[in-house]
Design a binder for these strands. Structure first.
Length: 674
RNA sequence: GGGCCCGUAGCUCAGCAAGGAUAGAGCGGCGGCCUUCUAAGCCGCAGGUCGGGGGUUCAAGUCCCCCCGGGCCCGCCA
């Protein structure tokens, strides 16, 4: 497989034995943070773990069959320094006691000295609570936070792959593809921070019908020189080619008559943007397109030249935009090379020997219907038990729930994306040394991802090697988007618009137009867009509005960036950092809240990883920024009395460190001036 | 028809993984605060039958069942 790096480097991945490809289940990989005392990067987490351990130990000594997770340890709403578990309620019945009495029996067995940072253990309202010692906790938290070590995972010595973006190279990136890239990139950053060696891969889908349409269009106007940003220019050819093909189908009566007008409008849209393309590209037919695709897949040099020109040009345009947003990749895998370098053949051989490969004329498919009846591993992927499958079969409904055939090729022998996707999975397992691969792919592909995982299982691999990181689409409120109709709002448009607004704000503040100001505007714009697309739970549809991206107030990228800047500037002006500080000087509600909020950061990062929720980091960053701004309004640092000043400087260092790290993890640029 | 996802304030969303101690933010609306570390900020007011109904539980926004509403998928498209 050819490797293409932005820097022009080239390398070939080392094949690896199959044994190393097995993945542990998601849940066993997780624990509640580093356990080694004194070396932890999660002080509060170590307290929670120890508390849960102690309680569980006591319960098991008492013969009570209940247990608690460290994650259940929650802060008391009445007292900031108190964390606890609702032990009493859980075990009251087992012991035939009132909740408080029951909790007391547990409390008596607990050795507070074995719980880090615990000052005392007590029972309140059915809860078993520990009071935390600020003296030690605050020092550890702020020391770690200011060095940006809080929550960092030890090196795992293992590689994980994140495959993301992987957009068809046929038209410019729009907000939907942007969400994929932004979520995938953020998740990769989170994995990296937690100690994995992350490999970011982009699958270049250059072998499908869409690219063939573009390539066919391009082949008719090869004399034209690309103008402007390549993805935009080729995007017009793609829309033009689609319109011609659709109009042809309508005229032959193969498509709905009513669509004719909108395709004619598409042509006019292209003409308005680039008359050369509209005048040069006038005819195209489906057979020509299919033939070109077939030739490309079989390695024909002429076809290869035009396919590669369009795919590489559009990809180059993508990388400009993605680079602008700070999103980069370690490796680009070309779909065509999965075919040429026999990964498709190898996957077919493995499926053939599994006995689940079927043929329908010349078309090849995986016999999922039989696999689901016969294979437990395949049933598990579809969330079905043996009994359920049997019952569905008796009712004749099995095929409604699981499609019986998973087609890999067309009957003309060309590969479908499903076929190359199976081959790609085989490639990931065999040709890389990653332990797991996260596929950042839209939720609409959930079924296909299950089918691919089932195929992996049938080829003899652990299907849990592949994890579908599903995210929902972006709904541009009030805007109709269609790449095939040259109807889209591109990421470039959004970034430019946001940047223009930032420039205007900066000018209103009397900042001139110089390169530094431009750079600030660019970074604020990137922050605003990325934050808007990441700050929603991935499985929810994003309701995208211009106003939302251009709103730089609370709960926006710029808001968090601004808060970071404030923290940074306090420290810059305050001068030398004191060696130490007195934690008891941090005593106001806001100061104490801030430290505890920082202490929760490691848990947030682990949750983001475990639940596939980068938005948890952006939510957290917003809350931290908001609390910090309240502190900022009411707590002078530089002019504070001696003692208080040093303690607040440490607090601000901690906030800056965590806020900065949180911004890094969601890929929003840090700014020192704005 | 079947499968998956979503439904919390006028709008956009957290909270559901791990059921607990008074349902949270932001935007929008109304009213305040710039001789003090950047007002992209802060303070206050108004706004909720957590889609509906059952169930489990000492305890349900959170778990289970049914229903209603919305989205996506069920292609030899990707």
């Amino acid at each position: 497989m050819r490797i293409l790096c932005p820097g022009g480097c080239s390398a070939r991945p080392q094949p690896v034995s199959l044994g190393s490809a097995s993945a542990g289940s998601l849940t066993t990989v997780l624990n509640n943070g580093p356990k080694v005392k004194g070396m932890t990067t999660d002080p509060l987490g170590s307290m929670k773990s120890a508390l849960a351990d102690e309680v569980n130990k006591a319960l098991s000594e008492m013969g009570v069959e209940e247990s608690f997770s460290p994650l259940q340890v929650a802060r008391s709403p009445k007292d900031v320094d108190v964390y606890g578990l609702p032990v009493g309620f859980k075990i009251a019945r087992h012991l035939r006691r009132k909740p408080d009495e029951a909790a007391l029996l547990v409390a008596e067995r607990i050795d507070a000295s074995s719980i880090p940072y615990a000052e005392e253990v007590r029972v309140e309202a059915g809860y078993l609570n520990v009071r935390v010692s600020r003296e030690t906790l605050f020092k550890d938290v702020l020391s770690l936070a200011s060095r940006e070590e809080l929550g960092r995972g030890e090196s795992k010595g293992e590689k994980l792959m994140v495959e993301h973006t992987s957009v068809n190279p046929v038209h410019p990136l729009h907000v939907g593809s942007g969400r994929n890239a932004i979520i995938g990139d953020s998740f990769a950053r989170i994995l990296d921070f937690l100690g994995w060696d992350v490999r970011r891969h982009y699958l270049v889908n250059d072998c499908n019908l869409q690219v063939a349409i573009l390539a066919a269009g391009r082949s008719k106007i090869r004399h034209l020189k690309p103008k402007g940003k390549p993805d935009h220019w080729f995007g017009l050819i793609y829309a033009m080619a689609n319109a011609i093909l659709e109009i042809g189908r309508i005229k032959r009566g193969e498509s709905e008559e009513g669509d004719l007008k909108e395709w004619e409008e598409t042509i006019e849209r292209v003409r308005a943007q680039d008359p050369e393309i509209a005048e040069g590209l006038t005819e195209l037919d489906d057979r020509y397109v299919m033939d070109l695709l077939k030739r490309y897949q079989s390695g024909d040099p002429d076809a290869r030249e035009v396919f590669r020109e369009v795919a590489e040009s559009v990809l180059k345009g993508f990388l400009q935009t993605l680079g602008r947003m700070g999103i980069t990749y370690d490796q680009f895998d070309w779909e065509s090379e999965l075919i040429w370098e026999s990964w498709v053949r190898k996957s077919l051989e493995k499926l053939e020997s599994s006995g689940y490969l079927g043929r329908d004329g010349e078309a090849i498919y995986v016999d999922l219907g039989r696999a689901i009846r016969e294979r437990e591993d395949v049933r598990r992927i579809f969330g079905l038990t043996e009994d359920e499958v049997r019952r569905l079969e008796e009712e004749g409904r099995l095929e409604e729930v699981v499609p019986p055939r998973f087609y890999l090729t067309r009957s003309d022998g060309t590969w479908l994306y499903t076929g190359t996707d199976v081959a790609y999975s085989l490639f990931k397992v065999e040709a890389t040394d990653v332990r797991r691969c996260y596929n950042v792919i839209a939720t609409e592909q959930t079924l296909e991802q299950k089918e691919v995982r089932a195929s992996l299982a049938l080829m003899g691999y652990d299907p849990d090697f592949l994890i579908h990181f599903a995210y929902e689409m972006v709904n541009l409120v009030g805007v109709r988007m269609s790449g095939r109709r040259a109807l889209y709002i591109t990421l470039d448009d959004l970034l430019d618009e946001a940047k223009a607004k930032v420039m205007k704000i900066l000018e209103e503040r009397g900042m001139g137009r110089d390169p530094e100001i431009e750079e600030i505007a660019e970074r604020v714009a990137v922050g605003a867009l990325k934050y808007a697309l990441i700050n929603v739970s991935p499985t929810k549809v994003v309701q995208f509005r211009w106003e939302r991206v251009l709103d730089f107030e609370t709960n926006s990228g710029p808001f968090v960036q601004y808060s970071y800047t404030r923290a940074h500037n306090i420290l810059k002006k305050a001068g030398e950092i004191p060696e130490s500080f007195d934690p008891s000087k941090l005593s106001s509600d806001l100061e104490v809240s801030l430290v505890y909020m920082l202490a929760e950061f490691p848990e947030k990062v682990r949750s983001a990883y475990q639940l596939l929720r980068p938005d948890l980091i952006s939510q957290y960053a917003n809350e931290l920024a908001s609390t910090f701004n309240k502190f900022y309004e009411t707590h002078p640092v530089i002019n504070a009395p001696e003692g208080t000043r040093e303690a607040r400087m440490w607090l601000v260092m901690g906030v800056r460190g965590v806020l900065g790290k949180a911004l890094d993890l969601i890929g929003v640029p840090r700014l020192e001036r704005m």
